[in-house]
Design a protein around this nucleic acid. Structure first.
Length: 726
DNA sequence: GAGCTGTTCTTTTTT
DNA sequence: AGAACAGCTC
């Protein structure tokens, strides 16, 4: 590792003298990659096969433009879809060129964070109805606000339980001037009211960040006076280059943003360089139009280059993957045949989990780190059994579900307090703070509204001071059971925040209010910018990775197990053609994560509803000569005999097995029961208390009461009150 | 308001 | 396939 760093640092020195093209890094690229790096067409899309060095090309491109073509990093916009991808790009750049300052990579980030930065720094948000002090809304917050407006205005809106989805999905139609929602309700009357309310409370949703910045960029681009102030500074102009990662995942709004960005410079439009893989579109269900890769190509008249060579997987895995390719030519491999793909049948999810636990133990004993191993599944709900069994076996694992601030009630509340403090117009949050059943207190109102007048003007602050200012000790109820824990959580959060704010205030101008606002905004967009990453890296936990197929995108592992490759599961149920195609791409993404070992398994007796006890038809699509078909290979008794460890754990496992099977059985039964069994109706009697309705006719009513048994009553007496269904 | 029929969505998740 | 909802009828 350190050798490599030295190599990089030595190389970094030579880069500055000779430019990127003369470096070892550049020399290592294949011809396709070099062509992409050196291309300077006005617009270029790189159709990058899976594992073909997409990010390497992106990094190479940035270095080439910067070091050889003298494009300042500040004149580049690098757009990604996730924060993780943005971080990775900057991190990899820094490895090669360690002296990059944060200011230089202002234009690097997710679409949303780049949009936020522009709205805060360079775009006239006032023209759109907000002020520079606006805050960023939490994704659920907009739905809450919409609900409130529906109630206050007495709007008729259908499918309120799916309001969030509806608001997103039908927005484009409304914008396009369609008269009425497909459900013929008041949804389209809600949009303008909602927009108005967000301006009044001076806050923007994630979608607003993109939409408003696009609008304002367009206004600016249309201004005739723009040309006069040419050459005045590099900052006021738009980017010279826009680089886009994972471009196949962009949606209509992001394309609009991209286009507005492109035109925002003086003179020639910015050059666009986008990399992506049409075969890895797995998120179209969440709003990405299908086939954005080609749409972008045509929209910008882009030249298409390809990266056909895969460096990741062995030849068997690639040969199988080629069967699932939907766009472009075969993936070219670089590696030997290698291990065949194992296809295994298990009796049920529990037996599969036990098998996996034992297999992983063996692999680990033979020198494989846990972190090189991953298990993928189609549904989140499938992880439960794995977790339980791995716990019993003592196998460390990491579940890829991120927890957010919102999952911790006290911090969720604290963030609301801070949000109101830096944006007193946010009456919705103010109401939520005060209405909180745990921590809501009238006195908080004044502290929030007065925050910027007093404390907010300071130029440095400590967590303790903020804790005292907001009277958090009292608010958190010092005598309550969870106080210690809550105080610790709150202090940790405030300390992180103050560290960030103090740094911000030292380096730049601005006061505490502005710094807190920035911190809160970026943590809304970024999750929590905390240091656990560092801690994790230090400890570098060696754990097996458990995740959904979706979450596996962009990752790679030595050994990959994909479980539940059953009909009805992978692909999930039977859907329309488009969605079926996406399931196929999802499976493609899954198998191409594996470098050396890939094992696919299906069960005879799947626990999940919807799944059938037959192997997925995707298994039939893989040529037989690439496969090693194996059964679970053990009978029930051999199986329990084979598990290692003392008797204690054996019976432990036996019990667990029973438990899990019982759970599966109950789940299945409850599905059937609900159909036949009438609903449980609760009743109340003056003397017997609450009970359950047994039967009822014109005259009589029969009910059962705990402790009293069944009783019959004459309806006419009205002794029994029917409460309704549970 | 119970009971019926018809419609729509269900999983996957980032910002 | 089945849950959840909308809208209709009596």
């Amino acid at each position: 590792m350190s050798e490599q760093t030295n190599e990089f640092q030595q190389a970094a020195g030579s880069y500055q003298k000779e430019g990127f093209q003369h470096t070892e890094e550049f020399y290592r690229l294949n011809e396709y990659q070099k062509t992409a790096v050196l291309d300077e067409s006005p617009a270029c899309v790189v159709n990058a096969n899976v594992g073909s060095g997409k990010t390497t090309v992106l990094i190479g491109k940035i270095l080439y433009l910067h070091l050889d073509r003298n494009v300042p990093l500040e004149k580049m916009t690098v757009l990604t879809f996730t924060n993780k991808a943005a971080d990775e790009i900057v991190e990899r750049l820094r490895k090669i060129k360690p002296d990059i300052a944060p200011d230089q990579v202002q234009g690097f980030g997710t679409f949303h964070s780049v949009a936020l930065r522009m709205l805060k720094n360079s775009l006239p948000v006032e023209e759109a109805g907000w002020t520079k002090e606006f805050t960023v809304m939490d994704p659920d917050e907009e739905t809450d606000l919409a609900m409130k407006i529906i109630q206050e205005h007495g709007l008729k809106v259908k499918y309120k339980n799916r309001l969030k989805k509806r608001l997103e999905q039908e927005y484009q139609n409304w914008l396009a001037g369609k008269a009425e929602s497909r459900y013929r309700d008041d949804l389209y009357r809600l949009y303008p009211l909602l927009a108005e309310e967000k301006k009044r409370q001076n806050k923007m949703s994630f979608a607003d960040l993109l939409r408003v910045s696009t609008e304002l960029l367009r206004l600016k681009n249309a201004e005739p006076g723009g040309e006069h102030s040419e050459e005045d500074s590099d900052r006021s102009g738009g980017p010279a280059w826009i680089l886009v990662d994972e471009v196949q995942d962009s949606d209509a709004m992001q394309i609009e943003f991209l286009e507005a960005m492109r035109e925002s410079g003086k003179g020639e439009p910015a050059k666009i360089f986008a990399v992506g893989d049409p075969n890895q579109v797995i998120y179209s269900w969440r709003g990405t139009g299908d086939n954005m890769f080609y749409l972008i190509k045509h929209r910008f008249g882009a030249k298409e280059l390809t990266l056909p060579v895969n460096y990741r997987s062995n030849a068997s895995i690639l040969a199988a993957a080629n069967r699932f390719l939907q766009f472009g030519n075969r993936i070219q491999g670089t590696r030997e045949e290698g291990q065949r793909i194992t296809v295994r049948n298990h009796y049920d999810p529990f037996q599969e989990a036990e098998y996996l636990a034992e297999k992983i133990q063996t692999l680990h004993r033979n020198g494989k780190s846990y972190r090189e191993i991953a298990v993928f599944y189609r549904l989140q709900s499938q992880s439960g059994i794995l977790e339980k069994v791995f716990d019993r076996y003592g196998i460390p694992y990491e579940l890829s579900v991120k927890k957010t601030l919102k999952d911790i009630p006290v911090l969720n509340w604290l963030v609301k307090v801070l949000r109101v403090s830096v944006n007193p117009a946010d009456t919705q949050m103010a109401a939520e703070v005060l209405a909180d059943p745990e921590y809501g207190e009238e006195s908080m109102h004044l502290r929030m509204t007065e925050f910027s007048e007093e404390t907010g003007k300071r130029e440095s602050v400590s967590a303790g001071e903020l804790f005292a200012y907001f009277g958090l000790r009292e608010a958190l109820h010092p005598s309550s059971a969870g106080y210690q824990e809550n105080e610790r959580l709150v202090m940790d959060f405030l300390e992180k925040m103050c560290a960030s704010c103090n740094k911000e205030m030292e380096s730049g101008q601005g006061n505490l209010t502005a710094a807190v606002r920035e911190f809160i905004n970026s943590s809304a967009l970024y999750g929590m910018k905390t240091e656990p990453d560092e801690k994790d890296r230090e400890a570098s936990p060696d754990k097996v990775n458990l995740m959904t197929l979706h979450a596996s995108k962009g990752l790679e592992f030595d050994t990959v197990f994909i479980i539940g490759v059953n009909q009805g599961m992978i692909p999930l149920r039977c859907k329309d053609f488009e969605q079926e195609e996406e399931e196929r791409r999802l499976f493609f993404v899954g198998i191409t994560r594996a470098e050396n070992n890939l094992e696919l398994s299906w069960y005879t007796n799947p626990g999940e509803p919807g799944a059938v006890g037959e192997p997925s038809r995707y298994l039939r699509m893989i040529p037989e000569q690439l496969l090693n078909r194996e059964g679970s290979g053990k009978t029930e008794s051999e199986r329990s005999g084979a598990s290692e460890g003392g008797d204690g754990r054996k019976s432990d496992l036996h019990q667990l097995r029973k438990q899990v099977q019982e759970q599966i059985r109950l789940k299945r039964e409850s599905v059937q029961k609900k159909e036949k069994e009438p609903k449980v109706i609760r009743v109340r009697h003056r003397k017997y208390g609450e009970g359950i309705l047994i039967s009822e006719d014109d005259m009589m009513i029969e009910a059962e009461f705990r402790g009293y048994g069944r009783k019959k009553f004459l309806k006419a007496f009205g002794e029994v009150e029917v409460l309704g269904a549970v």
